[in-house]
Design a protein around this nucleic acid. Sequence first.
DNA 1: ATCGCTGCAAATCATTTGCAGCAGC
DNA 2: GCTGCTGCAAATGATTTGCAGCGAT
Lengths: 141, 141
Amino acid sequence: MPGDHKPKTANGKIVRSTKQRQAILDILTKQQSHLSAEEIYQAVKITQPRISLGTVYRNLEILTELGSIYRNSFADGKARYESATIGHHHHLVCINCQDIENLTACPMAQDIGNLAQSHDFEPLEHYFEVYGYCGKCRRKD
Amino acid sequence: MPGDHKPKTANGKIVRSTKQRQAILDILTKQQSHLSAEEIYQAVKITQPRISLGTVYRNLEILTELGSIYRNSFADGKARYESATIGHHHHLVCINCQDIENLTACPMAQDIGNLAQSHDFEPLEHYFEVYGYCGKCRRKD
DNA sequence: ATCGCTGCAAATCATTTGCAGCAGC
DNA sequence: GCTGCTGCAAATGATTTGCAGCGAT
Protein backbone atom coordinates (compact mmCIF):
# COMPACT_ATOMS: atom_id res chain seq x y z
CA MET A 1 0.00 0.00 0.00
CA PRO A 2 1.91 3.06 -1.21
CA GLY A 3 1.66 6.14 0.99
CA ASP A 4 1.24 4.01 4.08
CA HIS A 5 3.96 4.88 6.60
CA LYS A 6 3.10 3.22 9.86
CA PRO A 7 6.08 3.28 12.23
CA LYS A 8 7.92 -0.02 12.56
CA THR A 9 10.71 -1.33 14.73
CA ALA A 10 13.86 -2.99 13.43
CA ASN A 11 12.23 -6.42 13.55
CA GLY A 12 9.42 -5.21 11.29
CA LYS A 13 6.67 -5.01 13.88
CA ILE A 14 4.10 -2.26 13.56
CA VAL A 15 4.25 0.15 16.47
CA ARG A 16 0.93 0.81 18.17
CA SER A 17 -0.01 3.87 20.15
CA THR A 18 -0.75 3.15 23.82
CA LYS A 19 -1.42 5.43 26.74
CA GLN A 20 1.65 4.11 28.56
CA ARG A 21 3.91 4.95 25.65
CA GLN A 22 2.30 8.34 25.20
CA ALA A 23 2.64 9.14 28.90
CA ILE A 24 6.39 8.34 28.82
CA LEU A 25 6.94 10.50 25.77
CA ASP A 26 4.90 13.32 27.34
CA ILE A 27 7.07 13.34 30.45
CA LEU A 28 10.30 13.45 28.47
CA THR A 29 8.95 16.20 26.24
CA LYS A 30 7.69 18.36 29.08
CA GLN A 31 10.51 17.92 31.57
CA GLN A 32 13.27 18.54 29.04
CA SER A 33 15.77 16.97 31.40
CA HIS A 34 17.83 13.80 31.50
CA LEU A 35 15.83 11.17 33.34
CA SER A 36 16.76 7.62 34.27
CA ALA A 37 14.35 4.75 33.68
CA GLU A 38 13.51 4.68 37.38
CA GLU A 39 12.79 8.43 37.46
CA ILE A 40 10.56 8.11 34.42
CA TYR A 41 8.80 5.19 36.07
CA GLN A 42 8.07 7.28 39.17
CA ALA A 43 6.78 10.17 37.07
CA VAL A 44 4.56 8.02 34.85
CA LYS A 45 3.00 6.30 37.85
CA ILE A 46 1.18 9.54 38.66
CA THR A 47 -1.04 9.22 35.61
CA GLN A 48 -0.63 5.46 35.03
CA PRO A 49 -0.53 3.92 38.52
CA ARG A 50 -0.51 0.33 37.28
CA ILE A 51 2.39 0.71 34.84
CA SER A 52 5.35 -1.57 35.47
CA LEU A 53 9.04 -0.78 35.27
CA GLY A 54 9.40 -3.45 32.59
CA THR A 55 6.94 -1.59 30.39
CA VAL A 56 8.91 1.61 30.88
CA TYR A 57 12.10 -0.11 29.71
CA ARG A 58 10.38 -1.71 26.73
CA ASN A 59 8.95 1.63 25.65
CA LEU A 60 12.21 3.49 26.13
CA GLU A 61 13.81 0.93 23.85
CA ILE A 62 11.16 1.36 21.16
CA LEU A 63 11.09 5.16 21.38
CA THR A 64 14.88 5.22 21.08
CA GLU A 65 14.69 3.00 18.03
CA LEU A 66 12.08 5.25 16.44
CA GLY A 67 14.30 8.26 17.10
CA SER A 68 11.72 9.97 19.30
CA ILE A 69 14.09 10.07 22.27
CA TYR A 70 17.84 9.89 22.89
CA ARG A 71 19.54 7.41 25.20
CA ASN A 72 22.75 8.51 26.88
CA SER A 73 25.00 6.44 29.09
CA PHE A 74 26.99 8.62 31.44
CA ALA A 75 30.01 7.75 33.56
CA ASP A 76 27.89 6.38 36.39
CA GLY A 77 26.87 3.55 34.07
CA LYS A 78 23.18 4.42 34.24
CA ALA A 79 21.26 5.26 31.07
CA ARG A 80 19.38 8.54 30.91
CA TYR A 81 16.83 9.59 28.34
CA GLU A 82 15.67 12.88 26.84
CA SER A 83 13.23 13.99 24.18
CA ALA A 84 14.64 14.18 20.66
CA THR A 85 12.78 17.43 19.99
CA ILE A 86 15.85 19.31 21.19
CA GLY A 87 18.03 18.04 18.37
CA HIS A 88 21.67 16.98 18.45
CA HIS A 89 23.69 18.38 21.34
CA HIS A 90 26.25 17.53 24.02
CA HIS A 91 26.50 17.66 27.79
CA LEU A 92 28.18 19.42 30.67
CA VAL A 93 27.85 17.09 33.66
CA CYS A 94 28.45 18.35 37.20
CA ILE A 95 30.22 15.68 39.24
CA ASN A 96 28.95 17.24 42.46
CA CYS A 97 25.21 17.87 41.98
CA GLN A 98 24.82 15.56 38.95
CA ASP A 99 23.09 18.35 37.06
CA ILE A 100 23.39 18.08 33.28
CA GLU A 101 23.44 21.13 31.08
CA ASN A 102 22.92 20.85 27.36
CA LEU A 103 25.42 22.30 24.92
CA THR A 104 23.50 23.35 21.87
CA ALA A 105 26.57 23.98 19.79
CA CYS A 106 28.43 20.99 18.39
CA PRO A 107 32.02 22.12 17.95
CA MET A 108 33.25 18.93 16.34
CA ALA A 109 31.11 18.54 13.27
CA GLN A 110 34.04 19.46 11.09
CA ASP A 111 36.56 17.40 13.04
CA ILE A 112 34.46 14.32 12.48
CA GLY A 113 34.44 14.83 8.75
CA ASN A 114 38.22 14.94 8.81
CA LEU A 115 38.36 11.75 10.85
CA ALA A 116 36.38 9.91 8.23
CA GLN A 117 39.11 10.71 5.73
CA SER A 118 42.17 10.11 7.87
CA HIS A 119 41.01 6.98 9.66
CA ASP A 120 38.98 5.12 7.04
CA PHE A 121 35.95 5.28 9.30
CA GLU A 122 32.29 5.98 8.56
CA PRO A 123 30.90 8.01 11.46
CA LEU A 124 27.23 7.64 12.34
CA GLU A 125 26.89 9.07 15.82
CA HIS A 126 29.15 10.71 18.31
CA TYR A 127 29.04 11.59 21.96
CA PHE A 128 30.85 14.36 23.76
CA GLU A 129 30.55 14.93 27.48
CA VAL A 130 32.47 17.22 29.75
CA TYR A 131 32.63 16.39 33.45
CA GLY A 132 33.47 19.02 36.04
CA TYR A 133 31.89 21.49 38.44
CA CYS A 134 28.99 23.75 37.56
CA GLY A 135 29.11 27.37 38.69
CA LYS A 136 26.78 26.79 41.63
CA CYS A 137 28.80 23.93 43.09
CA ARG A 138 32.12 25.62 42.47
CA ARG A 139 31.04 28.57 44.61
CA LYS A 140 29.60 26.37 47.36
CA ASP A 141 32.83 24.47 48.08
CA MET B 1 58.15 12.15 56.87
CA PRO B 2 59.16 14.49 54.05
CA GLY B 3 60.27 12.87 50.82
CA ASP B 4 58.02 9.90 51.50
CA HIS B 5 55.57 9.46 48.64
CA LYS B 6 53.85 6.13 49.04
CA PRO B 7 50.79 5.91 46.82
CA LYS B 8 47.50 6.37 48.62
CA THR B 9 43.87 6.11 47.69
CA ALA B 10 41.26 8.80 48.28
CA ASN B 11 40.42 7.41 51.72
CA GLY B 12 44.07 7.74 52.80
CA LYS B 13 45.01 4.07 52.73
CA ILE B 14 48.50 3.14 51.64
CA VAL B 15 48.48 1.11 48.44
CA ARG B 16 50.47 -2.11 48.55
CA SER B 17 51.97 -3.93 45.64
CA THR B 18 50.52 -7.39 45.09
CA LYS B 19 51.03 -9.92 42.34
CA GLN B 20 47.35 -9.78 41.45
CA ARG B 21 47.46 -6.01 40.98
CA GLN B 22 50.71 -6.22 39.05
CA ALA B 23 49.32 -8.92 36.77
CA ILE B 24 46.28 -6.81 35.92
CA LEU B 25 48.41 -3.78 35.16
CA ASP B 26 50.76 -5.93 33.05
CA ILE B 27 47.91 -7.19 30.91
CA LEU B 28 46.55 -3.73 30.27
CA THR B 29 50.00 -2.39 29.48
CA LYS B 30 50.91 -5.19 27.10
CA GLN B 31 47.60 -5.60 25.31
CA GLN B 32 47.08 -1.88 24.69
CA SER B 33 43.44 -2.54 24.00
CA HIS B 34 40.16 -1.77 25.68
CA LEU B 35 39.26 -4.69 27.91
CA SER B 36 36.19 -5.30 30.06
CA ALA B 37 36.53 -6.53 33.64
CA GLU B 38 35.50 -10.01 32.55
CA GLU B 39 38.10 -10.08 29.75
CA ILE B 40 40.79 -8.94 32.15
CA TYR B 41 39.68 -11.61 34.60
CA GLN B 42 40.05 -14.32 31.95
CA ALA B 43 43.48 -13.05 30.96
CA VAL B 44 44.79 -12.77 34.52
CA LYS B 45 43.64 -16.27 35.37
CA ILE B 46 46.41 -17.64 33.15
CA THR B 47 49.09 -16.48 35.54
CA GLN B 48 46.93 -16.20 38.68
CA PRO B 49 44.49 -19.10 38.48
CA ARG B 50 43.00 -18.50 41.93
CA ILE B 51 42.23 -14.80 41.41
CA SER B 52 38.58 -13.83 41.80
CA LEU B 53 36.49 -11.47 39.72
CA GLY B 54 35.88 -9.38 42.84
CA THR B 55 39.61 -8.81 43.21
CA VAL B 56 39.81 -7.74 39.59
CA TYR B 57 37.09 -5.14 40.14
CA ARG B 58 38.69 -3.89 43.35
CA ASN B 59 42.04 -3.48 41.64
CA LEU B 60 40.58 -1.79 38.58
CA GLU B 61 38.98 0.71 40.93
CA ILE B 62 42.26 1.41 42.76
CA LEU B 63 44.34 1.59 39.58
CA THR B 64 41.84 4.03 38.10
CA GLU B 65 42.02 6.16 41.22
CA LEU B 66 45.81 6.17 41.08
CA GLY B 67 45.65 7.25 37.44
CA SER B 68 47.49 4.14 36.21
CA ILE B 69 44.61 3.13 33.97
CA TYR B 70 41.59 4.76 32.34
CA ARG B 71 38.01 3.62 32.75
CA ASN B 72 35.65 4.22 29.85
CA SER B 73 31.94 3.51 29.71
CA PHE B 74 30.75 2.96 26.18
CA ALA B 75 27.24 2.88 24.78
CA ASP B 76 26.73 -0.79 25.67
CA GLY B 77 26.85 0.25 29.33
CA LYS B 78 29.87 -1.92 30.08
CA ALA B 79 33.07 -0.37 31.45
CA ARG B 80 36.31 -0.97 29.59
CA TYR B 81 39.82 -0.26 30.80
CA GLU B 82 43.12 0.64 29.20
CA SER B 83 46.61 1.51 30.36
CA ALA B 84 47.22 5.20 31.05
CA THR B 85 50.67 5.03 29.43
CA ILE B 86 49.04 6.09 26.15
CA GLY B 87 47.95 9.47 27.46
CA HIS B 88 44.74 11.36 26.83
CA HIS B 89 42.88 10.34 23.69
CA HIS B 90 39.47 9.53 22.24
CA HIS B 91 37.78 6.63 20.47
CA LEU B 92 36.40 5.45 17.17
CA VAL B 93 34.06 2.56 17.98
CA CYS B 94 32.89 0.18 15.25
CA ILE B 95 29.27 -0.78 15.85
CA ASN B 96 29.72 -3.92 13.78
CA CYS B 97 32.93 -5.60 15.01
CA GLN B 98 33.14 -3.64 18.29
CA ASP B 99 36.73 -2.77 17.53
CA ILE B 100 37.94 0.44 19.16
CA GLU B 101 40.57 2.62 17.56
CA ASN B 102 42.31 5.32 19.54
CA LEU B 103 42.37 8.91 18.34
CA THR B 104 45.60 10.41 19.53
CA ALA B 105 44.65 13.93 18.59
CA CYS B 106 42.24 15.76 20.86
CA PRO B 107 40.53 18.33 18.66
CA MET B 108 38.49 19.94 21.39
CA ALA B 109 41.06 21.15 23.87
CA GLN B 110 40.40 24.71 22.83
CA ASP B 111 36.63 24.32 22.63
CA ILE B 112 36.58 23.19 26.24
CA GLY B 113 38.43 26.25 27.39
CA ASN B 114 35.79 28.39 25.71
CA LEU B 115 33.03 26.42 27.39
CA ALA B 116 34.45 27.22 30.79
CA GLN B 117 33.99 30.89 30.02
CA SER B 118 30.62 30.84 28.33
CA HIS B 119 28.89 28.33 30.62
CA ASP B 120 30.34 29.09 34.06
CA PHE B 121 31.64 25.53 34.24
CA GLU B 122 34.94 24.13 35.50
CA PRO B 123 35.88 21.23 33.22
CA LEU B 124 37.93 18.38 34.69
CA GLU B 125 37.57 15.53 32.24
CA HIS B 126 35.87 15.00 28.93
CA TYR B 127 34.94 12.08 26.76
CA PHE B 128 34.49 11.98 23.03
CA GLU B 129 33.48 8.86 21.17
CA VAL B 130 32.49 8.38 17.56
CA TYR B 131 30.35 5.37 16.65
CA GLY B 132 30.20 4.08 13.10
CA TYR B 133 31.73 1.52 10.75
CA CYS B 134 35.44 0.85 10.48
CA GLY B 135 36.96 0.43 7.03
CA LYS B 136 37.05 -3.35 7.26
CA CYS B 137 33.38 -3.72 8.15
CA ARG B 138 32.26 -1.14 5.65
CA ARG B 139 33.83 -3.12 2.83
CA LYS B 140 32.44 -6.43 4.09
CA ASP B 141 28.76 -5.41 4.04
C1' DA C 1 -9.51 -11.61 15.27
C1' DT C 2 -4.97 -10.47 14.99
C1' DC C 3 -0.81 -9.60 17.16
C1' DG C 4 1.52 -5.96 19.64
C1' DC C 5 1.49 -4.46 24.44
C1' DT C 6 0.91 -4.86 29.41
C1' DG C 7 1.65 -6.23 34.35
C1' DC C 8 3.91 -9.36 37.06
C1' DA C 9 7.64 -11.97 38.57
C1' DA C 10 11.64 -14.30 37.82
C1' DA C 11 16.08 -14.14 35.34
C1' DT C 12 20.28 -12.04 33.79
C1' DC C 13 24.41 -9.13 33.72
C1' DA C 14 27.71 -6.04 35.51
C1' DT C 15 29.45 -4.62 39.60
C1' DT C 16 29.77 -4.29 44.80
C1' DT C 17 30.34 -5.88 49.39
C1' DG C 18 30.81 -8.67 54.07
C1' DC C 19 33.81 -11.68 56.06
C1' DA C 20 37.62 -14.47 57.79
C1' DG C 21 42.09 -15.71 56.68
C1' DC C 22 46.44 -14.29 54.26
C1' DA C 23 50.27 -11.41 52.91
C1' DG C 24 53.00 -6.93 52.20
C1' DC C 25 55.59 -3.55 54.61
C1' DG D 1 52.16 -7.18 63.89
C1' DC D 2 49.38 -4.06 61.86
C1' DT D 3 46.33 -3.33 58.20
C1' DG D 4 45.59 -3.64 53.39
C1' DC D 5 44.43 -7.42 50.23
C1' DT D 6 42.47 -11.80 48.76
C1' DG D 7 39.04 -15.54 47.65
C1' DC D 8 34.55 -16.78 48.20
C1' DA D 9 29.84 -16.15 48.14
C1' DA D 10 26.03 -13.54 48.75
C1' DA D 11 23.92 -8.88 47.79
C1' DT D 12 22.89 -5.13 44.92
C1' DG D 13 21.28 -2.32 40.96
C1' DA D 14 20.11 -1.76 36.31
C1' DT D 15 18.01 -3.89 32.73
C1' DT D 16 15.82 -7.95 30.28
C1' DT D 17 12.61 -11.57 29.54
C1' DG D 18 8.78 -15.45 29.75
C1' DC D 19 4.15 -15.69 30.12
C1' DA D 20 -0.84 -15.31 30.04
C1' DG D 21 -4.28 -11.98 29.53
C1' DC D 22 -5.59 -7.34 27.58
C1' DG D 23 -6.25 -3.81 24.10
C1' DA D 24 -5.37 -1.26 19.67
C1' DT D 25 -6.12 -1.65 14.81
